[in-house]
Design a protein around this nucleic acid. Sequence first.
DNA 1: GAGTACCA
DNA 2: GCAG
Length: 198
Amino acid sequence: MTYYPQQLDPGAQSILLGEIRRIIAQAPLYTPTMPRSGKPMSVRMTNAGPLGWVTDKERGYRYQTTHPVTGEPWPAIPPMLLALWNEVAGYPHPPEACLINYYGGAAKMGLHQDRDEADFDAPVLSVSLGDTGIFRVGGTTRKSPTQKFELKSGDVFVLGGEDRLAFHGIDRVLPGTSNLLDEGGRFNLTLRRVTRLG
DNA sequence: GAGTACCA
DNA sequence: GCAG
């Protein structure tokens, strides 16, 4: 099941953006690379929480406790995001990872599944900040048809239940559709439970 | 042919 | 330019 439980109002969006800026000051955005090929992704990433999702040529997709460039532990997940999870996720254990993706100018992300977690019972909760993203979701196989949605600044979106393993991606970001970020572009935050049990 | 968070 |  996919659903939009709520929209953050502009005040909440700018408070959340401040939290993200604080995280990035401590754990800078970096450019992840694909397993085996080492090709760079167009989004830049960082994380908050006890675990962060990373990828590189040598070791591939995984969660780890430290930033791959600085070697430091990830900053804490902002309390307001933990509160949002409690309101909306319907899952009795807190998220362990908050992946922060920044889509600059032409950044996009191809269709993929979030399947590097041990717990697929917990939903994945996403928050969009900044320019509108064209989001594509399909089914659990690559051949199933896809649908497009616009994810606007402040949109809270949940992939759970049957759709927890749905293929999804961002086709592109529409420049100039939000004035939240001075530099333009889009932040997407995804909260995930990684390990089983609490 | 499998796999594909890239690239075409 | 956009769709798939």
